[in-house]
Amino acid sequence: MYRIFQNSRFLTIGNWLKLVLAVQLVIVGLLIAADVSMRWEFAGTSPKLSIESPVSPGDQVRKYQPVLPRVETPDTDLDHTIDLAADQPTRLVFSIHQSSDLNSVLHMHGEIAQGDANRFSAYLETLASPPEVIAVNSTGGIVDEALQIGRIIREQEFNTQLSALEICLSACPYILAGGIERRVSREGIVGLHQHYYETPGFMPVFLAVENIQRGQGRTMAHLIEMGIDPGVMIHSLTTPPNDIYVLVEDELIQSQMATQIVE
Rank of each mutant, 00 (worst) to 15 (best):
F206D: 05
D87K: 11
P54T: 00
V232E: 11
L127Q: 00
R70L: 10
H193P: 11
S37L: 12
G150L: 10
H195M: 14
I228G: 01
R62T: 00
I152R: 09
P240I: 11
S8A: 08
S50L: 04
W16L: 15
P74I: 03
E52G: 06
H80Q: 07
V246L: 03
A135Y: 01
T12Q: 10
G217R: 13
Y2L: 12
V67K: 12
L147I: 11
V136D: 04
A164T: 14
V20C: 02
T81S: 13
D59V: 03
S121G: 04
L162E: 10
L237Q: 13
A43T: 07
S46Y: 03
D101G: 00
V93F: 07
I4D: 14
L49Y: 06
G44D: 03
A177W: 02
D116E: 00
D75S: 14
M226E: 05
I96W: 00
V20W: 02
H109Y: 09
I82N: 00
A117H: 00
E210W: 12
T139H: 10
H109C: 01
S236E: 04
P173M: 11
S8L: 14
V36Y: 11
L106D: 01
S185V: 13
C172R: 09
V136K: 04
R218P: 07
V26S: 01
G201T: 11
M257Y: 00
M38Q: 14
I189Q: 12
T45H: 11
N137C: 02
G58Y: 01
A221M: 10
N15G: 06
